[in-house]
Design a protein around this nucleic acid. Structure first.
Lengths: 161, 161
DNA sequence: CTATAATGGTTGCAATTGTAACCAATTGCG
DNA sequence: CGCAATTGGTTACAATTGCAACCATTATAG
């Protein structure tokens, strides 16, 4: 019997990705959570609508890779706080049409520079070539992960409904 | 007044990292969650102890970047399931000494090949140079994120206790 | 030596989250 | 048309999680 393949956490890419992503996300959350009483899902909705106003909740979910329940709850909280406004689509009365309110736009304008600044600081130690490599690697790996995830589930849990 | 800097989610590295990491983590969780009734924190503890037996709960927390409460709960569940065993340190009666049980070691040996295989598949589209670049970028960014996170908190919430 | 601080670990409680079920509106198809 | 299937969105409930407080043990300062 061959020796079992060895798993070393520090060299295991999924683990390293997770650590990095958590570090970065929590640092960024620090840039708005306390100051503006904004949760991570709420900020994601704000960011999506700031970039592209008029989307429905489903659009936001697709855009931000959030669960639709999470979007629904974040939207409810943002409506309560009057940070977004909601109207109904003319053509499909199920679809909502979401936009930042005046207050929401102000918030967006206040938070955006900080998170961009964080990104700049994070990437500051990388050279031009490294940044390009990072961009390319993120794109490739994300595409690959999308291709792979259904396969894994199918192979390992063939009887899942 | 200069135009506000624009935030585009698809080009925003922290956001892309988060999406990628979530995709990868949930794909991997699929490799053991259902088959072995193992949660993500439990698997992390198993992986840490499989790699380096005899660590205390605090060691595991440091090693896996998990919260100590999460480790405590995962350890409790694993003890209940007899997948690990716990003894006490001779020199410091607070510290536990954790090891995989026979069953835990078997589990580890069953899951490890699958997660390694997933990693291999994920990286399969990358060339040799790209893999080196990825390794280097993960290391650099993680180090940088560690440096940065206290600063951000200090700067943006100077009155945090 | 003693008081205080720090560390390892657990528990209680509240907040967050995920899953599934659900309602309403729309689409597709016989 | 009319009925099943789909889509947008919300809600209920359970499971997970995070925070703070806590106990026991060990280290440190005076």
């Amino acid at each position: 019997m061959p020796p079992p393949p060895r798993l070393q956490l520090d060299r295991f890419v999924p683990y390293r990705l997770s650590v990095l992503s958590n570090l970065v996300s929590s640092a960024i959350a620090g840039a708005y959570a306390e100051r503006f009483a904004l949760t991570i899902p709420e900020w994601r909705v704000i960011a999506a609508l700031g970039e592209q106003p008029g989307m429905s909740a489903a659009d936001v979910a697709a855009r931000t890779a959030m669960d639709k329940v999470a979007v629904s709850r974040a939207v409810a909280a943002l409506l309560r706080a009057r940070r977004i406004v909601r109207t109904q689509s003319r053509h499909d009365r199920r679809r909502s049409v979401l936009r930042l309110s005046r207050a929401g736009a102000t918030l967006y304008a206040q938070v955006t520079p900080d998170v961009l600044e964080y990104e700049t600081a994070l990437l500051a130690t990388l050279g031009r070539g490294e940044r390009q490599a990072l961009d390319r690697l993120l794109a490739k790996l994300t595409r690959r992960a999308h291709e792979l995830s259904p396969c894994i589930i199918a192979r390992l849990a063939p009887n899942a409904r």
